[in-house]
Write a protein that binds this DNA or RNA. Structure first.
Lengths: 227, 227
DNA sequence: CGGGATATTGACTCTTATCAATGCCCGTGG
DNA sequence: CCACGGGCATTGATAAGAGTCAATATCCCG
């Protein structure tokens, strides 16, 4: 009952990409705070910048990246969303960023037509959205500090700690995204991300079990760097 | 009826500063969506990071900067707020950034004790806050793109256009803040801001009537840069 | 067991930061 | 009214950090 309609999604990556699995479910018609499940394949678009906004989404499984592009293809990822988190709020009826599934991802879509249609929504739903939005603003302010004022090593250390904290805090961290996405989140190049991870390894604060699996040996040292 | 209580404010700037005028009014006790006027002198603190949050503020006159500091003093300004704008929302009871008056500034303070106390607020007030917050999120995402992916010249061009658009759009732009604040907003040094302004001048897209007064000669050229 | 995408590493370049000197403007006081 | 002083801004010389280009290396996935 979720995905049919195997329309090939058209993600616009800044460097050419091949879409692996790609299905873009048609959005459901109403059901206000009921929510409709949807599935997305790796690197497929959930919504695009400029597109009409009619839903907010909650991640069920997988990871979603929200990003903005410059005309020449430079990309900035503003957030990665993991299960339990919501994304897609807009003040008006247009999305001001795009959202894509990093890997195979399931979400629930809730009808939401901007702040204007708020009245029609249950009070606790509005409260939850406001709460999450303000939290998102706080996260984003931290990220501004990272992008504006931290050096490469500090950014990577902060990234590892952030992901670790959000995914449960075990000392093994499994990264869902490639270096390229990490770089576009941290305002670096993928080579620099790789070099900084190597440097952290040399310092003895992490080990790389594999490219996507990081063992955090010394979180205190990371914290001292990530500020 | 506004300011008495001439407590010397203790702004913690990353480079030492001298506080010129400094009065920090005591916050009013209740009056929910009524709002209480307050005045602040140049470079005085409106609230500090970590401080208990009980109000949201609306700028009446002057300009407010919202910023975060790293322990070593590096600073990132996340926004400048001009008259009509609101700031100071938090999801919980603590401010996650600090706010200071750039020059002499008047604001109105509204009681607001986090999202939890939302019920007590009039519906249209909540709606306005949600709307402004989501808009703020959109602005901040644009700023992430600027900090993460634009070069120095593009940042300065974007800054001039942003301020121009927000202050009415005349071709004369009066900057309320020093280079140092612009630099901390754009993630640059003040020297680089100065050099980029000189470069824009050399390109013939602006003239500098004085350090704080910029004449925008060719907004199309600025737009081509600022993306 | 390939083979393509992803990641690492190296050599070199370029942008911006840093350090430092000078200039300018504005308000204050003589 | 003019001179002085202090914050603020500009400009220059140099250095450092991250980007770019390029050559492997590694890891999944089929």
């Amino acid at each position: 009952m979720l995905t049919q309609n195997a329309v090939t999604a058209t993600p616009h990556f800044h460097r050419s990409f091949k879409v692996t699995a790609s299905r873009r479910p048609e959005a459901p018609e109403l059901s206000t705070p009921a929510g409709v499940p949807m599935s997305f394949g790796r690197n497929t678009e959930i919504y695009a910048e400029g597109e009409t906004s009619s839903y907010v989404y909650k991640v069920v499984s997988g990871v979603v990246r929200v990003s903005k592009l410059l005309p020449d293809g430079r990309r900035q990822i503003s957030a990665f969303h993991i299960p339990g988190e919501m994304f897609g709020f807009e003040a008006d009826e247009v999305h001001h960023a795009s959202a894509e599934a990093v890997g195979p991802t399931k979400v629930i879509a809730f009808k939401w037509e901007g702040v204007r249609g708020m009245e029609k929504q249950p009070a606790n739903f509005v409260r939850e959205l406001l709460s999450r939005t303000v939290l998102g603003l706080s996260h984003t302010q931290n990220h501004l500090l990272l992008l504006g004022r931290k050096n490469a090593l500090e950014r990577v250390a902060a990234f590892l700690l952030e992901m670790n904290a959000r995914t449960g805090g075990s000392s093994i961290l499994d990264l869902a995204m490639p270096r390229h996405d990490i770089a576009d989140y941290l305002g670096l190049t993928l080579e620099t991300v790789s070099r900084m991870l190597a440097e952290l390894k040399d310092m003895g604060t992490i080990t790389l079990e594999s490219a996507r699996r990081v063992h955090l040996l010394d979180k205190a040292a990371l914290r001292a760097l990530g500020a």
